[in-house]
């Protein structure tokens, strides 16, 4: 009751909510952290797949994780040189 009273009158948030929030963010990052080697393999695989359809600039090809608030995204920047002509 005392605590509730104090909280209503503007004392800080319950510390467990702070803990949860901080953990959520740090774990998103921990869990996503592929080894540099695995990330490199992923990049090569992606490059090979995309190259089947498009001619891409391999030097400008970038893949990395990006965090926006609570969500994690794999962001790839793939400069396209030209679209391959359909052969049929």
């Amino acid at each position: 009751m005392f605590d509730l009273f104090a909280r209503v009158f503007g004392r800080e948030d319950a510390s467990k909510d702070v803990a949860k929030e901080r953990l959520r963010l740090v774990l998103v990052h921990d869990r996503a952290s592929l080894s540099p080697q695995a990330l490199e393999e992923l990049k090569n695989d992606l490059m090979n797949v995309i190259s089947k359809y498009l001619e891409i600039d391999q030097d400008g090809f970038q893949v990395d994780f990006s965090r926006h608030e609570e969500t994690m995204a794999l962001v790839a920047n793939i400069p396209v040189r030209s679209v391959k002509r359909r052969t049929l």
Binding site: D3, A14, S15, K16, A19, K20
Partner: peptide
Amino acid sequence: VKRGDMMDIDD
């Protein structure tokens, strides 16, 4: 846990 200063089981 009761006063919100420790994560509970559900958390």
